[in-house]
Structure formats: C-alpha cells, structure tokens
Amino acid sequence: MFTGIVEELGEVTAVENLGDASRFRLRGPVVTEGAQHGDSIAVNGVCLTVVDHEGDEFTADVMAETLKRSSLGVLTVGSRVNLERPTAVGARLGGHIVQGHVDGTGQVLARTPSENWEIVKISLPADLARYVVEKGSVTVDGISLTVVEAGPDFFTVSLIPTTLDLTTLGHKQPGDPVNLEVDVIAKYVERLLAAGQGAGK
C-alpha cells in the first residue's frame, strides 16, 4: 500500500523491449536505498516489482497490459517519474490509501497559474467520473491530491509550489497523459450497496 506522497522525482535511464513486455531501468537514490529483489516501488502511481538493483538504479518489468492501461507506455529514456516506496505498518498516512493499481488514464487539459499555486484541469474517463467528488481524494501519477472541482468528464486540482517542484505535475503540459487511481473506498462502497440491493429483491 502507498500513500500518494511522492518521495522523489526519478528518471528513466533505459527501456528494453521484451516483445510482450518492457524492462525499465530507473534512477532513484532515495527509493533504492535498501531495496531488495521483489520489493515494490510505485512509478507514476503504478506498483512495480524490483527485478534488479544496483547503486541508485533499479529495473522493473512491465507487462503489455500495464503498458496499455497506463501512461508507462509513453516513457522514454530521460522521462521523469514519481517514485514512492510502500508505506510501513504504523507509519503516518500522509496522503490517502493508494494501491498502485491504475484505474485509467486522463490528459492534462489546461494549467492556470496563480501567485502561490496552480490549477490543473485533467480529463476524466466516463466510467470513473462517479468516484471523483469535490474535496475527495484522487491519485494522479501517484500523487495524492484533493479534488477542487468535479465535472462529468474532468476534474481540477490545486497544486502548491512544493508539488510543482518535486513531482511530474510541475512539468506536464496540456495533452500529456497521466495515470489515475480513484478512491478504493468508493469502489468498495458501490459494490457493497449493489450487493445489498440485489439481496433485497
């Protein structure tokens, strides 16, 4: 489990095409400290497994399904990525519960700068819109954010300078894809309510 609090802005240093998968090598001095084979690291919100680790770099295999359903498929050498290790049991939950299971992708639609923050508008797939509510939580490229406005096919978030400086959202431009993970609690509630209604018939 992750919290959506990005630990560092890493970099893709190599991409190897494996046919039905890709192997990424990524640099991240913070997240590789003490890393072991089989550990999990979230890369732009996608939970990946460490295959190998050397120095401040690690490799991870990404299957075709993940490449298709997330924005990892557009990463190239030099791409910056948000990195986070799983939260430790008993640690503070600084963001919200993030599984590292991407529900879909959106696109940055617009950026509106202000003196001390920036509003970013992001497209929202129709099948995810019901899980995104104003003042609720959403994960964008692995970043735990609070929804400012929730529309039928978009939402907005307000980014403080720290988020702009230390995550990929400081560099994303209109048209760029982002990974989205909605609040897992909302999905469970929906499933439970649907089951209850079915049982009452």
Rank of each mutant, 00 (worst) to 15 (best):
S137E: 06
L93F: 15
G28I: 11
F154P: 00
R111K: 15
A64C: 10
E134V: 06
N179D: 10
S123Q: 08
H101A: 07
E190C: 12
M1K: 01
D183N: 10
V157W: 05
F154Y: 15
E33A: 14
T105A: 07
G4Q: 05
T76Y: 03
D61Y: 04
K68W: 02
F24D: 00
T105Y: 04
V178H: 06
S22H: 14
H96D: 11
G104C: 09
R80T: 04
G19H: 13
A129M: 10
I143K: 02
V178C: 07
I160N: 07
G28R: 10
T13R: 08
Y188S: 03
L48T: 02
V81L: 00
A110V: 12
V6D: 01
R23H: 12
V6L: 09
R27C: 10
T162K: 13
R69T: 14
S137F: 13
L124G: 12
L26C: 13
T87D: 04
L192W: 09
S40M: 01
T87E: 05
A186N: 12
L169M: 11
S158D: 14
V15G: 06
V15K: 11
P125V: 00
D103R: 08
V184G: 01
A88P: 04
D153L: 03
E118P: 02
G142S: 05
A35C: 13
I41M: 11
G200Q: 07
G196E: 11
